[in-house]
């Protein structure tokens, strides 16, 4: 049913799965940040190489990543067209009516596509190899310093992981209520805008009430199992850095140095 690859976790045993989620998040952030500055072919070549290496370390098939890119294809084509037709400069390669394609436009468009694809694939590699719970605890761990300024990091992390756990359930529920109301003649595709927005209520109200009921039940279940506050708890999933993280850090460090070097030469 769910064909989206981006954001999905697929269990596996490849190298990248054993890297600490904090490392993976940091590497992804650094990578995306550096890409903003990429403006030469060698820089893109280096970034692509780094991505290729990462993808190999996920142990997943290339076909899977192709499926990940496909749904955002239209978005890519749209941005390409914008870049292609609305960047000025010379030389002009092609001219027809009000449309003209320039060399800087063409290069810009290619850069944008590359940047986009690289970012999407890198984040996919992150989510593909890291269970949502691990992402939640990694965020909690990375945000720990904010506790000093009274940010309830533990609560936020718990909320995040419970929210993640309920997403599939709410999707199933939406499908069910939608079908129940369709059976009673609900139609979201006819009538004026006001009529259409009113037509959503029979869908939204049961979902809201259902979610509220779940929240109350869940609160009871949590309380009965001894939950008092998010702070005074131990953790089942303990994050710990290992050899893989050192390797990943060194690899990324090397990449960063080379990348900056390339930008410098330019």
């Amino acid at each position: 049913m769910n064909n989206l690859v981006i954001g999905q976790f697929i269990p596996g045993k490849a190298w990248l799965y054993r890297v600490d989620p904090r490392t993976k998040i940091l590497v992804t952030v650094v990578y995306v940040f550096l890409l903003i500055f990429a403006n030469t072919w060698p820089a893109y070549a280096l970034a692509t190489l780094f991505l290729a290496l990462t993808l190999v370390l996920t142990g997943q098939s290339l076909e899977l990543y192709w499926r990940g890119i496909k749904p955002v294809m239209w978005l890519i084509i749209f941005t390409v067209c914008l870049q292609l037709f609305f960047t000025g400069g010379t030389p002009v390669l092609f001219h027809w009516q009000f449309l003209k394609i320039t060399l800087p436009g063409l290069i810009n468009a290619l850069y944008v596509v590359l940047r986009f694809v690289l970012i999407v694939l890198m984040s996919t590699a992150l989510t593909l190899t890291t269970p949502p719970t691990a992402i939640a605890s990694a965020i909690e761990s990375l945000l720990k310093p904010l506790k000093a300024i009274k940010v309830p990091v533990a609560e936020l992390a718990l909320m995040l992981s419970i929210a993640l756990r309920f997403v599939p359930l709410l999707m199933l529920e939406t499908d069910k209520v939608m079908k129940a109301q369709k059976s009673r003649g609900m139609s979201l595709s006819t009538g004026s805008l006001i009529k259409r927005s009113k037509a959503v209520l029979p869908l939204l109200i049961p979902l809201f009430i259902g979610a509220l009921q779940r929240a109350l039940d869940l609160a009871n279940a949590m309380e009965v199992r001894g939950f008092e506050s998010a702070d005074n708890r131990t953790r089942y999933r303990v994050l710990s850095f290992s050899k893989q993280d050192l390797v990943a850090a060194l690899g990324t460090g090397l990449f960063v140095l080379l990348f900056i070097g390339l930008l410098w030469i330019n």
Binding site: P131, L169, L218, A221
Partner: peptide, 8 residues
């Protein structure tokens, strides 16, 4: 469903 707190 309503008493399953963990993600796994």
């Amino acid at each position: 469903d309503n008493q399953f707190v963990g993600a796994t």
